[in-house]
Amino acid sequence: MTVLATIATQRAIGRVNPVAKLLAAVVLSLTLLLSIDWVSAGVALVLEAGLLAWSGLTPGQLLRRTAPLWIAAPLAFITTCLYGRDSGATLLTSGFITVTQGSVALGLAIGLRILAIGIPGIVLFATTDPTDLADGLAQVLRLPSRFVLGALAGIRLVGLFQDDWRQLGLARRARGVADVGGLIGRIRRGAGMAFALLVLSVRRGSKLATAMEARGFGSDIERTWARPSTFGRPEWTLVATAALIAAVAVVCAVGAGTWEIVVG
C-alpha cells in the first residue's frame, strides 16, 4: 500500500481541491496527446520541472513515486528508435534494425511525452487524499454520491485484499499444492488464487454494503456533507497554470514547425 498511500504535505498543493488537480492533469495530457512531436513535450517537461519545487514532495519521494516513468520512458525511446517508422537519413543499420533521423525524433517525442504527462499526474495524485477527491467529485462536479461514495468505501478494501492474497499463497503451501510443476503449474495456481480472492472480495463487498445501508446509505433522504468541498482562487490558479504550460508548449511546437495533429 505504501506506493499508493497519500503523502501528507504542508504545502498549498495539499489543500488544493483534488478536482482542480484532476482538471489540470486532464488539460495537460489531452493537449500533449494531440500531436506527437518532441518540441511540445520537451517544453512542457521543462516548465513542469520548474514547478516541482512546489509539489510538496521531497526529492526522495519524488524519485520513488516516478520510478516507473524513468524505466518506461527510456525503454520507449530505445524501442522506437530501433523499430519505429523510419524516415529521413539512415544513421545505423544492422539486420532488422534501422535507426533513422525520423525514428530517433519519434522516439524522443514518445519518451518525453511519457514524462511530461506522467510526472504531473503522479505528483498531483500523490498528494491527493481519496476522501477529499470523492468529496470534490460529488460536491463540485456533482457526480452521483451513491456511485462516488460506494467507490470510495471500496478502495478501503484493497488493503484487505492484499492481506487475503498473502494468506491464500501461504495456505496453498500449507495444503501441499504449492510446488506443482513449473510455469504452467504456477499460472494455474495463480488463477485458482485469483478466483478465491474474487469470492472473498464479493463477500467482503456485500458485508460492507450491509454496513453502509445500516447507516442510512442509499435512502431517499437528501444527503448533507460533513466536509465542505470548495473551488476557489487556488484551484483556478492551478488549472490556469496547467493551461498556460499547455499553451506555451503548443506555441513553441508550432513555431518550430514540429506540431502535427495526429487525430482527426
Partner: peptide, 12 residues
Amino acid sequence: VAFGPENLGVPR
C-alpha cells in the same frame, strides 16, 4: 462516524 448523519441529511 459522520457517514450516518450525512446520509440522514443532518446539517453540517
